Simulated assay, not measured.
Amino acid sequence: MTADKPTAQHRFVERFGSALTEAGLQRLPARVFAALLADDDGRMTAAELGEVLSVSAASVSGAVRYLQQLRMIHREREKGSRRDVYVVADDAWHDMMMNTPRVYEPMTTALRDGVDLVGGRATSAGKRIALSVDFLEFVSEEMGSIAERWDKRRAELGH
Results as ranks from 00 to 15, higher is better:
M1Y: 03
M1F: 09
M1V: 06
M1N: 13
A3I: 15
D4A: 14
K5H: 15
P6C: 03
T7R: 02
T7M: 03
A8E: 09
R11Y: 08
F12A: 10
V13Q: 09
E14R: 14
E14W: 09
E14A: 14
F16N: 02
G17I: 01
G17A: 09
E22P: 02
E22W: 04
A23P: 07
G24E: 06
G24R: 11
L25F: 13
L25A: 09
Q26R: 10
R27M: 01
L28F: 05
L28V: 11
P29Y: 00
R31C: 02
R31I: 00
V32L: 05
V32R: 04
A34E: 05
A35V: 01
L36Y: 06
L37A: 13
L37N: 12
A38E: 08
D39E: 15
D39R: 10
D41E: 14
G42T: 01
R43I: 09
R43D: 10
R43K: 12
M44S: 09
A46K: 02
A46F: 02
A47G: 05
G50E: 00
E51H: 14
L53A: 05
V55H: 12
S56K: 11
A57I: 05
A57E: 12
A58Y: 07
A58F: 09
A58I: 14
S59D: 13
V60G: 01
G62H: 14
A63C: 01
V64N: 03
V64K: 03
R65D: 05
L67Y: 04
Q69E: 14
Q69A: 13
Q69Y: 08
R71C: 10
I73K: 03
I73H: 06
I73C: 04
H74C: 11
H74V: 04
R75E: 11
E76Q: 10
E76K: 07
E76W: 01
E78R: 15
S81F: 11
S81E: 06
R82W: 15
Y86M: 08
Y86A: 04
V87S: 02
A89G: 10
D91G: 04
A92R: 10
D95F: 05
D95E: 09
M96S: 13
M96W: 15
M98I: 09
P101I: 09
Y104W: 06
E105C: 11
P106G: 02
P106H: 02
P106K: 09
T108C: 08
T108R: 13
T109D: 10
L111F: 03
G114S: 08
G114H: 14
G114N: 09
L117C: 00
V118L: 02
G120D: 05
G120C: 08
R121A: 07
A122Q: 13
S124L: 12
A125R: 10
A125I: 05
K127Q: 05
K127M: 15
K127S: 07
A130L: 07
A130Y: 06
L131P: 06
V133Y: 05
F135H: 11
L136S: 04
V139Q: 06
S140E: 10
S140V: 03
S140A: 15
E142S: 12
M143D: 14
G144S: 06
G144L: 11
G144V: 10
S145Q: 07
S145M: 13
S145N: 04
S145H: 07
E148F: 06
W150R: 08
K152P: 00
R153V: 11
R154N: 11
A155E: 15
L157M: 08
H159R: 11
